[in-house]
Design a protein around this nucleic acid. Structure first.
Lengths: 160, 160
DNA sequence: TTATACGTACAGTTTAAACTGTACAAACAA
DNA sequence: TTGTTTGTACAGTTTAAACTGTACGTATAA
Protein backbone atom coordinates (compact mmCIF):
# COMPACT_ATOMS: atom_id res chain seq x y z
CA UNK A 1 0.00 0.00 0.00
CA UNK A 2 2.84 2.34 0.81
CA UNK A 3 4.26 1.67 -2.62
CA UNK A 4 1.05 2.17 -4.50
CA UNK A 5 0.19 5.47 -2.88
CA UNK A 6 3.75 6.66 -3.38
CA UNK A 7 3.59 6.11 -7.11
CA UNK A 8 0.16 7.62 -7.37
CA UNK A 9 1.26 10.66 -5.39
CA UNK A 10 4.18 11.14 -7.73
CA UNK A 11 1.91 10.95 -10.73
CA UNK A 12 -0.50 13.45 -9.25
CA UNK A 13 2.30 15.85 -8.40
CA UNK A 14 3.90 15.70 -11.83
CA UNK A 15 0.82 15.70 -13.96
CA UNK A 16 -0.95 18.49 -12.15
CA UNK A 17 2.05 20.71 -12.78
CA UNK A 18 1.32 20.42 -16.48
CA UNK A 19 -2.37 21.04 -15.99
CA UNK A 20 -1.51 24.27 -14.23
CA UNK A 21 -0.05 25.56 -17.47
CA UNK A 22 -3.59 25.80 -18.77
CA UNK A 23 -4.35 28.54 -16.28
CA UNK A 24 -5.97 26.29 -13.74
CA UNK A 25 -5.25 26.82 -10.06
CA UNK A 26 -3.01 24.30 -8.30
CA UNK A 27 -6.02 22.97 -6.41
CA UNK A 28 -8.16 22.54 -9.47
CA UNK A 29 -5.28 20.94 -11.34
CA UNK A 30 -4.74 18.50 -8.53
CA UNK A 31 -8.41 17.69 -8.37
CA UNK A 32 -8.53 17.01 -12.08
CA UNK A 33 -5.51 14.73 -11.90
CA UNK A 34 -6.88 12.73 -9.01
CA UNK A 35 -10.11 12.26 -10.86
CA UNK A 36 -8.25 11.27 -13.99
CA UNK A 37 -6.15 8.67 -12.18
CA UNK A 38 -9.02 7.12 -10.30
CA UNK A 39 -10.35 3.85 -11.62
CA UNK A 40 -14.00 4.81 -11.28
CA UNK A 41 -16.00 8.01 -11.18
CA UNK A 42 -15.84 9.70 -7.79
CA UNK A 43 -18.29 11.31 -5.41
CA UNK A 44 -17.76 14.67 -3.76
CA UNK A 45 -17.05 12.94 -0.46
CA UNK A 46 -14.42 10.71 -2.00
CA UNK A 47 -12.72 13.65 -3.66
CA UNK A 48 -12.88 15.60 -0.44
CA UNK A 49 -11.27 12.66 1.32
CA UNK A 50 -8.55 12.17 -1.30
CA UNK A 51 -7.65 15.81 -1.80
CA UNK A 52 -7.88 16.62 1.90
CA UNK A 53 -10.05 19.63 1.09
CA UNK A 54 -13.53 20.39 2.33
CA UNK A 55 -16.56 19.25 0.40
CA UNK A 56 -17.45 22.85 -0.42
CA UNK A 57 -14.04 23.41 -1.88
CA UNK A 58 -14.21 20.31 -4.02
CA UNK A 59 -17.66 21.31 -5.12
CA UNK A 60 -16.53 24.64 -6.51
CA UNK A 61 -13.51 23.01 -8.10
CA UNK A 62 -15.67 20.48 -9.89
CA UNK A 63 -17.91 23.25 -11.09
CA UNK A 64 -14.97 25.07 -12.61
CA UNK A 65 -13.73 21.94 -14.34
CA UNK A 66 -17.22 21.13 -15.61
CA UNK A 67 -17.64 24.62 -17.01
CA UNK A 68 -14.46 24.08 -19.01
CA UNK A 69 -15.73 20.73 -20.28
CA UNK A 70 -12.84 18.88 -18.74
CA UNK A 71 -15.00 16.88 -16.36
CA UNK A 72 -18.47 15.44 -16.64
CA UNK A 73 -21.11 14.08 -14.37
CA UNK A 74 -22.14 10.44 -14.82
CA UNK A 75 -25.01 8.40 -13.48
CA UNK A 76 -24.90 4.91 -12.10
CA UNK A 77 -28.08 3.17 -11.08
CA UNK A 78 -28.47 2.66 -7.40
CA UNK A 79 -26.00 5.39 -6.51
CA UNK A 80 -27.59 8.45 -4.99
CA UNK A 81 -24.56 10.68 -4.85
CA UNK A 82 -23.35 12.69 -7.79
CA UNK A 83 -20.56 10.98 -9.68
CA UNK A 84 -17.92 12.77 -11.71
CA UNK A 85 -15.24 11.64 -14.10
CA UNK A 86 -12.81 13.24 -16.53
CA UNK A 87 -13.71 13.59 -20.15
CA UNK A 88 -11.89 11.55 -22.78
CA UNK A 89 -9.59 13.03 -25.37
CA UNK A 90 -7.43 14.77 -22.84
CA UNK A 91 -5.40 16.58 -25.44
CA UNK A 92 -8.26 17.73 -27.64
CA UNK A 93 -10.27 18.94 -24.68
CA UNK A 94 -7.53 20.95 -23.13
CA UNK A 95 -6.31 22.40 -26.38
CA UNK A 96 -9.78 23.30 -27.46
CA UNK A 97 -10.54 25.10 -24.26
CA UNK A 98 -7.21 26.84 -24.17
CA UNK A 99 -6.97 27.92 -27.79
CA UNK A 100 -10.53 29.15 -27.84
CA UNK A 101 -9.71 31.29 -24.88
CA UNK A 102 -6.75 32.83 -26.65
CA UNK A 103 -8.47 33.27 -29.95
CA UNK A 104 -11.63 34.82 -28.59
CA UNK A 105 -9.64 37.13 -26.37
CA UNK A 106 -7.33 38.38 -29.09
CA UNK A 107 -10.21 38.84 -31.49
CA UNK A 108 -12.12 40.92 -29.00
CA UNK A 109 -9.13 43.02 -28.01
CA UNK A 110 -8.21 43.66 -31.60
CA UNK A 111 -11.71 44.96 -32.18
CA UNK A 112 -11.46 47.23 -29.18
CA UNK A 113 -8.14 48.59 -30.32
CA UNK A 114 -9.60 49.36 -33.71
CA UNK A 115 -12.36 51.26 -31.96
CA UNK A 116 -9.83 53.31 -30.07
CA UNK A 117 -7.92 53.85 -33.28
CA UNK A 118 -10.90 55.43 -34.97
CA UNK A 119 -11.56 57.48 -31.87
CA UNK A 120 -8.04 58.81 -32.25
CA UNK A 121 -8.73 59.85 -35.82
CA UNK A 122 -11.31 62.33 -34.62
CA UNK A 123 -8.95 63.83 -32.05
CA UNK A 124 -5.34 63.17 -33.08
CA UNK A 125 -2.94 62.26 -30.32
CA UNK A 126 0.37 62.57 -32.12
CA UNK A 127 2.28 60.24 -34.40
CA UNK A 128 3.95 58.28 -31.65
CA UNK A 129 0.74 57.10 -30.09
CA UNK A 130 -0.78 56.29 -33.45
CA UNK A 131 2.24 54.20 -34.32
CA UNK A 132 2.01 52.35 -31.01
CA UNK A 133 -1.63 51.55 -31.61
CA UNK A 134 -0.77 50.12 -35.00
CA UNK A 135 1.90 47.98 -33.36
CA UNK A 136 -0.61 46.75 -30.82
CA UNK A 137 -3.10 45.80 -33.47
CA UNK A 138 -0.44 44.00 -35.46
CA UNK A 139 0.54 42.16 -32.33
CA UNK A 140 -3.00 40.96 -31.79
CA UNK A 141 -3.34 39.98 -35.41
CA UNK A 142 -0.22 37.86 -35.23
CA UNK A 143 -1.40 36.20 -32.05
CA UNK A 144 -4.76 35.47 -33.55
CA UNK A 145 -3.40 33.85 -36.69
CA UNK A 146 -0.77 31.91 -34.76
CA UNK A 147 -3.21 30.34 -32.41
CA UNK A 148 -5.76 29.76 -35.15
CA UNK A 149 -3.17 27.85 -37.09
CA UNK A 150 -2.25 25.85 -34.03
CA UNK A 151 -5.89 25.02 -33.54
CA UNK A 152 -6.11 23.67 -37.05
CA UNK A 153 -2.98 21.65 -36.55
CA UNK A 154 -4.28 20.18 -33.32
CA UNK A 155 -7.56 19.11 -34.77
CA UNK A 156 -5.70 16.87 -37.19
CA UNK A 157 -3.53 15.29 -34.56
CA UNK A 158 -4.13 11.74 -33.39
CA UNK A 159 -4.68 10.82 -29.81
CA UNK A 160 -4.43 7.23 -28.69
CA UNK B 1 -4.90 66.84 -21.31
CA UNK B 2 -8.06 65.09 -20.20
CA UNK B 3 -8.49 63.67 -23.66
CA UNK B 4 -4.97 62.45 -24.05
CA UNK B 5 -4.84 60.70 -20.71
CA UNK B 6 -8.25 59.16 -21.36
CA UNK B 7 -7.10 57.53 -24.57
CA UNK B 8 -3.85 56.42 -23.04
CA UNK B 9 -5.67 54.92 -20.09
CA UNK B 10 -7.91 52.97 -22.41
CA UNK B 11 -4.94 51.67 -24.32
CA UNK B 12 -3.21 50.61 -21.13
CA UNK B 13 -6.32 48.87 -19.86
CA UNK B 14 -6.95 46.96 -23.05
CA UNK B 15 -3.44 46.02 -23.95
CA UNK B 16 -2.42 44.86 -20.53
CA UNK B 17 -5.31 42.42 -20.56
CA UNK B 18 -3.64 40.68 -23.45
CA UNK B 19 -0.27 40.73 -21.77
CA UNK B 20 -1.79 38.96 -18.80
CA UNK B 21 -2.46 35.97 -21.03
CA UNK B 22 1.27 35.36 -21.02
CA UNK B 23 1.13 34.51 -17.32
CA UNK B 24 2.22 37.93 -16.14
CA UNK B 25 0.51 39.47 -13.14
CA UNK B 26 -1.89 42.36 -13.73
CA UNK B 27 0.62 44.77 -12.21
CA UNK B 28 3.51 43.59 -14.30
CA UNK B 29 1.36 43.64 -17.41
CA UNK B 30 0.30 47.16 -16.68
CA UNK B 31 3.84 48.24 -16.05
CA UNK B 32 4.97 46.74 -19.32
CA UNK B 33 2.21 48.47 -21.23
CA UNK B 34 2.92 51.85 -19.71
CA UNK B 35 6.56 51.48 -20.59
CA UNK B 36 5.64 50.41 -24.09
CA UNK B 37 3.37 53.39 -24.64
CA UNK B 38 5.78 55.95 -23.28
CA UNK B 39 7.65 58.03 -25.79
CA UNK B 40 10.99 57.73 -24.06
CA UNK B 41 12.65 55.27 -21.69
CA UNK B 42 11.49 55.78 -18.12
CA UNK B 43 13.09 55.96 -14.72
CA UNK B 44 11.90 54.08 -11.67
CA UNK B 45 10.49 57.28 -10.23
CA UNK B 46 8.54 58.05 -13.37
CA UNK B 47 7.10 54.55 -13.47
CA UNK B 48 6.27 54.75 -9.81
CA UNK B 49 4.49 58.01 -10.48
CA UNK B 50 2.59 56.72 -13.51
CA UNK B 51 1.58 53.37 -12.10
CA UNK B 52 0.77 54.77 -8.69
CA UNK B 53 2.83 52.03 -7.09
CA UNK B 54 5.80 52.37 -4.79
CA UNK B 55 9.30 52.49 -6.16
CA UNK B 56 10.09 49.15 -4.58
CA UNK B 57 7.13 47.58 -6.29
CA UNK B 58 8.09 48.98 -9.66
CA UNK B 59 11.62 47.82 -9.09
CA UNK B 60 10.63 44.19 -8.62
CA UNK B 61 8.27 44.41 -11.55
CA UNK B 62 11.01 45.68 -13.81
CA UNK B 63 13.25 42.89 -12.64
CA UNK B 64 10.67 40.31 -13.59
CA UNK B 65 10.19 41.83 -17.02
CA UNK B 66 13.93 42.07 -17.58
CA UNK B 67 14.42 38.45 -16.63
CA UNK B 68 11.93 37.53 -19.31
CA UNK B 69 13.73 39.70 -21.88
CA UNK B 70 10.69 41.84 -22.41
CA UNK B 71 12.31 45.00 -21.10
CA UNK B 72 15.83 46.32 -21.24
CA UNK B 73 17.91 48.93 -19.50
CA UNK B 74 19.30 51.75 -21.62
CA UNK B 75 21.87 54.44 -20.97
CA UNK B 76 21.66 58.06 -21.89
CA UNK B 77 24.60 60.36 -21.27
CA UNK B 78 24.04 62.86 -18.54
CA UNK B 79 21.22 60.87 -16.94
CA UNK B 80 22.15 59.37 -13.64
CA UNK B 81 19.02 57.35 -13.02
CA UNK B 82 18.46 53.91 -14.51
CA UNK B 83 16.41 54.05 -17.68
CA UNK B 84 14.24 51.23 -18.95
CA UNK B 85 12.38 50.61 -22.16
CA UNK B 86 10.54 47.73 -23.82
CA UNK B 87 12.32 45.50 -26.26
CA UNK B 88 11.41 45.59 -29.93
CA UNK B 89 9.74 42.74 -31.76
CA UNK B 90 6.89 42.52 -29.34
CA UNK B 91 5.46 39.42 -30.91
CA UNK B 92 8.68 37.50 -31.29
CA UNK B 93 9.76 38.29 -27.75
CA UNK B 94 6.55 37.26 -26.12
CA UNK B 95 6.12 34.18 -28.21
CA UNK B 96 9.67 33.10 -27.67
CA UNK B 97 9.43 33.45 -23.94
CA UNK B 98 6.06 31.79 -23.77
CA UNK B 99 6.67 28.86 -26.08
CA UNK B 100 10.01 28.10 -24.53
CA UNK B 101 8.29 27.90 -21.23
CA UNK B 102 5.77 25.42 -22.53
CA UNK B 103 8.26 23.34 -24.45
CA UNK B 104 10.81 23.07 -21.69
CA UNK B 105 8.14 22.23 -19.19
CA UNK B 106 6.53 19.49 -21.25
CA UNK B 107 9.89 18.01 -22.14
CA UNK B 108 10.89 17.81 -18.53
CA UNK B 109 7.60 16.38 -17.35
CA UNK B 110 7.61 13.79 -20.09
CA UNK B 111 11.02 12.68 -18.91
CA UNK B 112 9.80 12.42 -15.33
CA UNK B 113 6.80 10.40 -16.35
CA UNK B 114 9.04 8.01 -18.22
CA UNK B 115 11.08 7.62 -15.07
CA UNK B 116 7.99 6.76 -13.09
CA UNK B 117 6.94 4.39 -15.83
CA UNK B 118 10.12 2.39 -15.51
CA UNK B 119 9.79 2.45 -11.76
CA UNK B 120 6.40 0.86 -12.24
CA UNK B 121 7.92 -1.93 -14.31
CA UNK B 122 9.87 -3.10 -11.30
CA UNK B 123 6.82 -3.11 -9.07
CA UNK B 124 3.66 -3.43 -11.17
CA UNK B 125 0.69 -1.35 -10.13
CA UNK B 126 -2.03 -2.86 -12.23
CA UNK B 127 -3.11 -2.35 -15.81
CA UNK B 128 -5.27 0.66 -15.16
CA UNK B 129 -2.48 2.78 -13.75
CA UNK B 130 -0.09 1.70 -16.48
CA UNK B 131 -2.60 2.72 -19.09
CA UNK B 132 -3.09 6.09 -17.44
CA UNK B 133 0.64 6.72 -17.42
CA UNK B 134 0.79 5.95 -21.12
CA UNK B 135 -2.02 8.41 -21.71
CA UNK B 136 -0.16 11.06 -19.73
CA UNK B 137 3.00 10.57 -21.70
CA UNK B 138 1.10 10.74 -24.97
CA UNK B 139 -0.51 13.93 -23.77
CA UNK B 140 2.84 15.51 -23.09
CA UNK B 141 4.18 14.33 -26.40
CA UNK B 142 1.32 15.95 -28.25
CA UNK B 143 1.76 19.18 -26.35
CA UNK B 144 5.45 19.23 -27.07
CA UNK B 145 5.07 18.73 -30.79
CA UNK B 146 2.19 21.19 -31.02
CA UNK B 147 4.08 23.99 -29.40
CA UNK B 148 7.28 23.16 -31.23
CA UNK B 149 5.44 23.47 -34.50
CA UNK B 150 3.92 26.73 -33.42
CA UNK B 151 7.36 27.99 -32.54
CA UNK B 152 8.60 27.19 -36.01
CA UNK B 153 5.61 28.90 -37.54
CA UNK B 154 6.14 32.00 -35.46
CA UNK B 155 9.76 32.35 -36.36
CA UNK B 156 8.78 32.71 -39.97
CA UNK B 157 6.14 35.31 -39.33
CA UNK B 158 6.66 38.91 -40.21
CA UNK B 159 6.34 41.72 -37.73
CA UNK B 160 6.09 45.28 -38.88
C1' DT C 1 36.73 64.00 1.83
C1' DT C 2 31.66 64.92 2.66
C1' DA C 3 27.12 65.36 0.96
C1' DT C 4 23.49 64.00 -2.05
C1' DA C 5 20.99 60.83 -5.01
C1' DC C 6 19.72 56.48 -6.34
C1' DG C 7 18.66 51.38 -6.24
C1' DT C 8 17.46 47.55 -3.46
C1' DA C 9 17.04 44.40 0.77
C1' DC C 10 13.96 43.49 4.36
C1' DA C 11 10.20 43.55 7.73
C1' DG C 12 5.77 44.58 8.25
C1' DT C 13 1.16 45.62 6.26
C1' DT C 14 -2.54 45.45 3.14
C1' DT C 15 -5.33 43.00 -0.12
C1' DA C 16 -7.19 39.28 -2.54
C1' DA C 17 -7.80 34.43 -3.09
C1' DA C 18 -8.63 29.94 -1.26
C1' DC C 19 -10.72 27.43 1.95
C1' DT C 20 -13.88 25.89 5.94
C1' DG C 21 -18.11 25.10 8.74
C1' DT C 22 -22.65 25.94 9.34
C1' DA C 23 -27.05 26.18 7.79
C1' DC C 24 -30.48 25.44 4.54
C1' DA C 25 -33.05 23.47 0.44
C1' DA C 26 -34.04 19.71 -2.52
C1' DA C 27 -34.33 14.83 -3.24
C1' DC C 28 -35.17 10.50 -1.59
C1' DA C 29 -36.66 6.60 1.89
C1' DA C 30 -39.69 4.79 5.04
C1' DT D 1 -46.20 12.50 6.26
C1' DT D 2 -41.47 12.51 8.78
C1' DG D 3 -36.66 11.51 8.89
C1' DT D 4 -32.23 11.16 6.18
C1' DT D 5 -29.05 12.13 2.92
C1' DT D 6 -26.85 15.04 -0.36
C1' DG D 7 -25.48 19.35 -2.77
C1' DT D 8 -24.73 24.21 -2.36
C1' DA D 9 -25.11 29.23 -0.62
C1' DC D 10 -22.99 32.23 2.46
C1' DA D 11 -20.25 34.37 6.13
C1' DG D 12 -16.19 34.13 8.29
C1' DT D 13 -11.38 32.51 8.52
C1' DT D 14 -6.99 31.21 6.94
C1' DT D 15 -3.26 31.61 3.73
C1' DA D 16 -0.53 33.51 0.20
C1' DA D 17 0.60 37.29 -2.75
C1' DA D 18 1.28 42.06 -3.60
C1' DC D 19 2.66 46.12 -1.92
C1' DT D 20 4.81 49.87 1.18
C1' DG D 21 8.19 52.45 4.03
C1' DT D 22 12.34 52.49 6.15
C1' DA D 23 16.94 51.77 6.22
C1' DC D 24 21.19 50.79 4.18
C1' DG D 25 24.93 50.38 0.53
C1' DT D 26 26.88 52.18 -3.51
C1' DA D 27 27.83 55.60 -6.74
C1' DT D 28 28.27 60.25 -8.30
C1' DA D 29 29.25 65.32 -7.60
C1' DA D 30 31.34 68.98 -5.18
Amino acid sequence: MATESHITDELVNEFSKTIELFDLSPSDSRLFTILFLNHQPMTLDEMSQTTGKSKTSVNTGIRTLSDLNLVKQVWKKGVRKDLYTTNDDLFQRFMHYYLDKWISHTTMQKRRLHAIESEIETRPQGDIIEDKVKKMIDFHQLLETSFSRLKETCEHMEER
